[in-house]
Nucleic acid binder design. Structure first.
Ligand SMILES: [Zn+2]
Length: 117
DNA sequence: AGCCTTTGACCAGCG
DNA sequence: TCGCTGGTCAAAGGC
């Protein structure tokens, strides 16, 4: 039978293209004052946790990588691991008195995350 | 137009 | 030697 008939049938269901940025993969993109581009996500069975991979968007910062690790049952508990070093000033000013007072360095503590092999 | 995000597959190193 | 895991890349679509 001609295909163009048969009333509605075998609908290709195009609305199922591909999942569009559901934003439900993680707790949220924690902005620490820099901009990052997510380039991968994997579940590490070794520790039973999810791990997201972020890269600094700055051209002078391509070496700076950020890894966000969070428990599948506790997305609120994030573990941020920074790799590399920034070679450019903060693209976005955190606040205005952060660099003058002790307000800054708060994320520095996050950098102290130990790296157990 | 550009930029962003997501998923799958591949590769390499190690024990 | 093999298997496994972790890590990265590419493509597509949407705003
Ligand atoms: Zn940077």
């Amino acid at each position: 039978m001609t295909e163009a008939q048969s009333s509605m049938n075998t609908p290709p269901q195009p609305s199922s293209t591909v999942e569009i940025r559901p934003s439900n993969v993680g707790p949220a993109i924690p902005e620490d004052g820099y901009e990052w581009r997510k380039y991968g996500q994997k579940y590490i069975s070794s520790i039973g946790k999810n791990r997201s991979y972020f890269k600094c968007r700055d051209k002078n910062c391509r070496v700076m990588k950020k890894k966000v690790e969070w428990s599948p049952s506790d997305p609120s508990n994030l573990r941020i691991v920074y790799d590399g070093t920034h070679n450019h000033p903060s693209p976005t000013s955190l606040k205005e008195d952060e660099s003058l007072t002790s307000t800054a360095k708060q994320y520095d503590l996050a950098n102290q995350v130990l790296r157990p092999s």
